[in-house]
Design a protein around this nucleic acid. Structure first.
Lengths: 247, 247
DNA sequence: CGCTGCATTGAAATATCTCAATCAATGTGG
DNA sequence: CCACATTGATTGAGATATTTCAATGCAGCG
């Protein structure tokens, strides 16, 4: 199933088979996008939302000079712009990192889903709230940590999220961000990102290869360095709470 | 009505009278809180959400050393932790700035509302998405602007939001944040916040009185300084779009 | 081979932080 | 009414973090 990974590892009460099927059937089209391609632009009027099947997408705001600030990042299993369903336009831009495969879901189909499956509607709401929770942690990251900590914190988040959807092999980060991307995510220059990576390498925490690949050498030290607490990702079993309430 | 200001100025299609009444009736209790009081703590299990009738509330994450990073701020008309309804616990802390009056709304009552009034449910979803949009802009603010710009940008947002709910008189900011609060919101120290305010005063943009009051001298220059574009606040008439879709 | 894009490094400029002191307003107890 | 403590604003000086500008290295690619 194309939408197999939606909220994987996140919901204590999983979606029902019929809900999963309904979501799957709501997909109108599967699209493959080239690297560094804009999918949705700020202000654009929206009729569809996109679910990311494979690849990485970057969400960013641009300043007057055209400099980007990443405000979010999506991996397999994420709805990229589900909030567009309720807001009808986006306040930021969305584009691919590498090549990506997305499922296009018309808002009309989502409206039907939401009407027919209240619990699925709740799950979709929850999924947009997860984005908000991550945004908050991004604010913390940029506001309270130094450059090295910011990069470490971002990578820690990525590792945790990749684990939820079974995309982390315990060694290499399968998200080919450039140092410039890390810089744009962390509110620093790419020169400084480079120097921070150098220090992280010297500490034996990770090994950034020149080509965007990053090998994780010491995951525990990585988490420690940036005081990472992943509870904001609302994973299963984090706490014994029935997220989404009872059926 | 206590919940009169909910989404005021935000929805092109207003809520219906019966929806407003239902929301009003969902309020279990009205509570007055003293200044600098914690209302909800990170991780706490939630059974209620709170709607802010009067006052200001601060949402923050704390680092290891107990230093705060504000991740959001609420004024009259905001649901402070509506996302708690779908998430069942918060990932951040919420407390009052000055004295505040809140309406307590049990999650059970919200569940009923959501079942009975699909359009209201959509509006509530929308309201949590507005929070996310503001979070994104906070990331931009901290990541891309210098200290002076960050403070200006925060104040610009506040002015726009206060205008939506009719709480801005065109002169003075009715939100008694201390310089320390601005610092915690902007990811800088309070000493540096002080120096930034000094410059903003020298530029003739605003006049910070010693007691937390801030007089806005040149609103246009304020917006210009921080390249403020308030479209992320999704005000009425921003664009001719039917936010929330048709009924 | 010569591009091109990205990583890497150095040196100087700038922004921000830290520490420490002073000031002004306010409240409290006598 | 005064003496004193408290809180937040303000300022100075030196330390540190980050940016800027400029150069070099390195790999893939037509």
């Amino acid at each position: 199933m194309r939408t197999e990974l939606f909220l994987k590892g996140r919901l204590r009460h999983d979606l029902r088979a019929e809900e999963k099927r309904a979501l799957e059937d709501a997909v109108a089209e599967v699209i493959t996008l080239p690297p560094r391609t804009t999918l949705v632009e700020r202000g654009e009027r929206l009729e569809n939302s996109y679910y990311l099947i494979e690849g990485t997408m970057l969400r960013h705001l641009d300043d007057r000079k055209g400099e980007r600030q990443l405000v979010g990042l999506n991996i397999s299993g994420d709805f990229v712009d589900l909030h567009g369903f309720a807001m009808k336009r986006l306040d930021h831009n969305v584009g691919t990192l590498g090549q990506a495969v997305v499922a296009k879901v018309p808002h009309k189909a989502i409206a039907t889903l939401v009407d027919q499956f209240p619990h699925l509607a709740r799950a979709m709401w929850f999924s947009t709230l997860l984005d908000a929770a991550m945004h908050r942690e991004w604010i913390f990251r940029i506001g309270r940590l130094n450059a090295e900590g910011r990069i470490a914190h971002l990578i820690a988040e990525l590792i945790d999220r990749l684990k939820f959807v079974g995309k982390y092999d315990g060694n290499e980060l399968p998200v080919p961000l450039l140092q410039r991307d890390y810089a744009e995510a962390c509110g620093i220059t790419s020169v400084h990102a480079n120097r921070s990576f150098k220090r992280l390498r010297e500490r034996g925490i990770l090994d950034p290869r020149g080509d965007g690949r990053i090998i994780i050498l010491d995951e525990a030290a990585l988490y420690r360095l940036c005081e990472f607490d992943g509870s904001y990702l609302y994973g299963d079993g984090e706490l014994a709470l029935e997220t989404l309430g009872d059926r």
